[in-house]
Simulated scan of single mutants.
Amino acid sequence: RDSHLKQVPGFVSFALMKGAERGDHVLYASHTLWADEESFKGWTRSEAFRAAHKGAKSSEGMYLGPPVLECFDAVQVLD
Rank of each mutant, 00 (worst) to 15 (best):
L27K: 12
M17R: 09
P66S: 15
W43T: 02
S30D: 09
K57C: 00
L27E: 15
M62Y: 09
H25Y: 13
G19E: 04
G55Q: 14
D24G: 08
C71V: 14
F49L: 02
K57V: 10
S46E: 06
L69M: 12
M62Q: 11
E47Q: 15
K57R: 13
G55F: 13
H25E: 10
L16S: 08
A35W: 01
L16E: 08
L64P: 00
W34V: 05
F49R: 03
A56K: 08
E37I: 05
A52S: 15
L69W: 01
R50T: 12
W34A: 07
R22H: 09
S59D: 10
L33R: 11
A35H: 07
S46A: 06
W43R: 01
T44D: 03
Y28S: 07
A48V: 02
G65Q: 01
L69G: 02
R45N: 14
E38G: 01
H53A: 06
W43D: 01
G42I: 03
A15W: 03
A35M: 07
L16Y: 07
A56W: 07
T44F: 02
V68P: 00
E21F: 03
S30E: 08
A35N: 02
R45S: 14
L16R: 11
S58P: 11
G61K: 04
T32C: 10
E38T: 13
K18N: 03
G23S: 14
A29F: 06
V68S: 04
A29S: 13
A48S: 12
L64Y: 03
T32A: 13
G42H: 11
L33V: 14
E38H: 05
A20S: 13
K41I: 06
F72E: 00
A20V: 14
L16G: 08
D73P: 00
G65D: 00
L69F: 02
S30M: 12
H53V: 10
M17G: 07
K18T: 14
H53T: 13
A20M: 12
K18F: 00
C71K: 15
M62I: 06
M17L: 14
A48L: 01
G61F: 06
F72S: 00
D36T: 04
F72I: 00
R50L: 11
F72N: 00
A56F: 08
E37G: 02
K18R: 15
D24N: 12
P67Q: 10
G65V: 05
G61I: 04
E60I: 10
A29E: 14
